[in-house]
Design a protein around this nucleic acid. Structure first.
Lengths: 311, 311
DNA sequence: GTCAACATTTTGTCCAGGACAAAATATGAA
DNA sequence: TTCATATTTTGTCCTGGACAAAATGTTGAC
């Protein structure tokens, strides 16, 4: 019965699990920056007070956003939360009714209300149609969920629940679409190795399938060499890559350049997602998407250039 | 372009990711047992040949099954796979038609065919009804998937896909059931902290909701103290706990005993799942379930003892 | 002004090898 | 058998040094 009250703190392994910071990192921070400064138990092992774990969680989030440890580790908790607020994207400021719906959906996610979540998403899909649903609901919701995660308002299982439900809805909607395997262009969808997020791919598929494109998804984590060989077979018009915000921009750019160089000229290369936003200038010969909403226009442009008309 | 061919091997962090064995463990095995014996790169850092990583994967699985490192690390790859075959549960030997369906479903899981998977499960559910579906399809399928995972025939994403789809189907079916919040007994469903598997809970809910029980799920990972206080409010007749095979039996028994002691006498305590199989003798005052199929009978027994009739 | 190339600092991960508690097993008593 | 107690096994923790990759700062050309 003593197990339930833990006033002291957490061992290093638990902190690693909670914060995502490796044990080695925790120890080296202590050595270099003087924080965290865990107490020690009877065996000389580190015991992290809960307050320090909270600060570590914030630090982790901020570093994921590109800030550097040396600059933020000395800051007070208050200054860190202020920084997080700054980074949080600007409010959407759109339709108030839509905003209320988003708020409700986020509440369902937080409370694990699978059925309510599913139902409200399904309703929005019905009302808006697949394309608008992706652009006007899924994309902004992703932002909101990402923000909430950043602030620590959501845990892993909640984020997971959200992703799974969106994926289920999109898959069902795409599957229900008529004539999935006919039109042009033929688009290969995939991600680079170490990029696991399948949601971006589904969003692209959902955005362009209604336009008559033929999407073939290779799933996530396709080795570069496999992408190259599949795309060189002459079956594909476009290779589309998706990058989540977690993917290192440098690596994305390098991989895209290398892929572009090894791909036949007549195959277009499209890239989208947080990791490549604003990198268009550095990626000649590659179409970079700043928003999911610009996909249909790009599709039209491709058709015009290729002299293919929509069926 | 040189990135694609990697004849050499993996760095220690990649092996940790692939095998689930901590870096510290990998190093201490090398010191103690002489295996693995990675090569070194120019910086003196370990580079694990792929063959050794394969063996490590098998070792991990076998150890998870209760075998001890010292006994199996010296064995050849061949002997290890033989051991895995031994451990794999005996074939079901049931209806050949059913077996063929299971094989097909496993294929869908392996190939990420979400829609086919969903459709075939849905068909079985329609045909059998919720209760038989859980006992005759979900339970044996879990075994098959677990076995396949043990053999390394499935990766994490595939197992995930399976779990999610089953959960979606069960949730929808439970939600569709009439009069969900009326009958007796009132059953609280949850798991202990560090037990994340929600599927067991859903299976229980699916098995007893059609019998007229009123299920209230607290979700996974409820602290013992929270279970106690919620159950002491007088609202619940039964507290049902689910344990996956990954949960340490010792911990389950200890927790259950402690919970039983702190719970009001009139509240029954039910426990099920691989971790508590065969532990009934050690858990006086607790109903231990060896199979999901025995739940309805237990429900009847409770009603008879409590003098409650099914509506 | 932009951009590339180079120098410097920051930062995460790796290493060795000792130590120890918790878990698993063996041993002995009731 | 079942329980309690000794012994072995095993994973995790420790320190403090080292170093490459990433990020940042600087220089000079266009």
């Amino acid at each position: 019965m003593n197990t339930s009250l833990q006033p002291a703190g957490l061992p290093i392994a638990a902190v690693e699990r909670d914060t995502g910071l490796a044990k080695d990192t925790l120890r080296v921070w202590e050595r270099r920056y003087g924080f965290p400064q865990p107490e020690r138990d009877a065996n000389g092992e580190r015991v992290y007070p809960l307050a320090q774990v909270d600060k570590l969680r914030l630090l982790r989030r901020l570093i994921d956003q590109g800030l550097r440890p040396a600059k933020i580790i000395p800051l007070e908790l208050q200054a860190l939360t202020a920084l997080l607020d700054e980074i949080g994207r600007p409010r959407d400021g759109g339709d108030p009714e839509r905003s209320a719906q988003f708020t409700a959906i986020l509440k369902f996610v937080r409370l694990h209300l699978h059925e309510d979540l599913r139902r409200s998403l399904q309703q929005l899909l019905m009302k808006l149609g697949l394309q608008r649903f992706v652009c006007e609901v899924v994309a902004p919701l992703n932002q909101l969920v990402g923000d909430a995660w950043l602030r620590g308002e959501l845990e892993v299982p909640e984020e997971h629940l959200y992703t799974e439900q969106i994926q289920n809805i999109l898959r069902a909607a795409i599957g229900a679409h008529p004539a999935p395997h006919s039109g042009r262009p033929v688009v290969m969808l995939t991600t680079f190795p170490e990029e696991q997020h399948a949601l971006g791919l589904l969003m692209v598929e959902a955005a362009i399938t209604p336009e008559g494109a033929c999407c073939i998804s290779l799933g996530t984590q396709t080795p570069l060499e496999d992408i190259r060989s599949a795309a060189s077979g002459g079956r594909f018009d476009i290779v589309a890559l998706s990058f989540s915000s977690a993917y290192p921009t440098r690596q994305a750019i390098e991989g895209l350049r290398s892929l572009r160089a090894s791909l036949p000229e007549q195959v277009s290369l499209w890239a989208g997602g947080s990791a490549v936003h604003g990198a268009a200038r550095k990626l000649p010969g590659i179409t970079v998407f700043e928003s999911i909403a610009s996909l249909p226009a790009a599709l039209d442009a491709w058709r015009a250039a290729a002299g293919v008309t929509q069926p």
